[in-house]
Computed example of a mutant assay.
Amino acid sequence: MSQGVRPTQQARSRETRDRLVRALDTKLREKAFADVTIAELADAAGLSVGAVYRRFENKDAFIPVIFELYRERLEIFMAGEGRLEIEPAEGLRAALHAACRTGWRFLDQHGYLVRAAHIYSRLRPDLIGDDWEAMLDQARESAKSLLDVFGDEVKRTDRAEAAQMFTYLMNTLPIERAIYPDEGAAAVLTLGEEQFVAAIADTLYGYLVTPDRGQPDG
C-alpha cells in the first residue's frame, strides 16, 4: 500500500513546492527578498506557515529558488523573443546594438529577479553552488562566438580577454541602471533608456575595434 501512496505524496510535495515558487515570484515583483516574510509566502501560496517550513527549512532555503527562476526565465527568453539573429553583412556595430537592446528587454521584464540574483550571488554564494559561475561561463562563450563572426572588424588580439570585457560591460552597465536607478553613478544619468542602451553598444564597439596597445592601426 505504501508504494501506491508514495506517488500521491510526491505529487503533493511537488505541488506545494510549485505553489511556493510562484508565490516567491509574485512577492519579488512587489518587494525585495529581504523584506519578504515566510508568512507572506504562505499566504500568497494559500498554505499554512507550517506547510512552508515542512518544505523549506528557513527563508534562506528560498535563495536557490531565486536562481532557479532566473535561469528558467532567461532560457525561455533566449529561446523565444530574445533569440538573437545576427546578420554578418550588417556589421559588428549593428550586432552590438541588437544584442544590447535584447539584453535590456530582458532586464525590463525580469529586473526584479536579476536584482535578487545579483544581490544574493554576492551575499550568499554558498547557497547557489556553481550555477552563477556556469551562467557567466556560458555568457563569455556566447560573446566569443559573436566576436568570431566579426573577426575582420575586431582588433583585439586576445579574444578570450575581449569576450570577458564584453560580458562584463554587457552585464554591469545595464544592470546598474536597470536595478539600481537611484543609487551610485546611475542616479546622475540623464540619458533616456534608448540613448543609454545605444551608448553601451557604442562603448563596446569602440573597445572592440581599438587595437591593443602597441598594435599598429589597420
Rank of each mutant, 00 (worst) to 15 (best):
S2Q: 08
S2E: 09
G4D: 10
G4H: 07
T8G: 07
R12P: 02
R12E: 15
R14I: 10
T16V: 12
T16G: 07
D18P: 07
V21A: 05
V21S: 07
R29S: 14
A32S: 14
F33I: 06
A34R: 12
T37Y: 02
T37L: 01
A42N: 08
A44N: 05
G46Y: 05
V49I: 14
V49Y: 10
V52S: 05
R55E: 15
F56Q: 01
N58V: 06
K59A: 08
D60L: 03
I63W: 00
E68F: 08
L69E: 10
R73H: 14
F77R: 06
M78T: 09
M78L: 13
A79G: 12
E85P: 02
E85K: 12
A95W: 00
A99S: 15
R101D: 05
R101E: 11
W104R: 06
R105H: 14
F106V: 11
L107H: 14
H110P: 03
G111E: 03
Y112A: 07
R124F: 09
P125N: 12
I128N: 02
W132V: 15
L136N: 08
A139Y: 03
E141S: 11
S145L: 13
L147E: 01
D148N: 13
V149F: 00
D152Y: 04
V154N: 00
R156W: 03
D158Q: 04
R159T: 15
E161P: 02
M165C: 07
M165T: 11
L169D: 03
L173P: 02
L173R: 00
I175E: 01
I179P: 09
P181T: 11
D182P: 01
D182G: 12
A185K: 10
A186Y: 02
F196M: 10
V197I: 13
A198G: 07
I200S: 01
L204W: 01
L204A: 08
P211M: 09
D212A: 09
D217T: 11
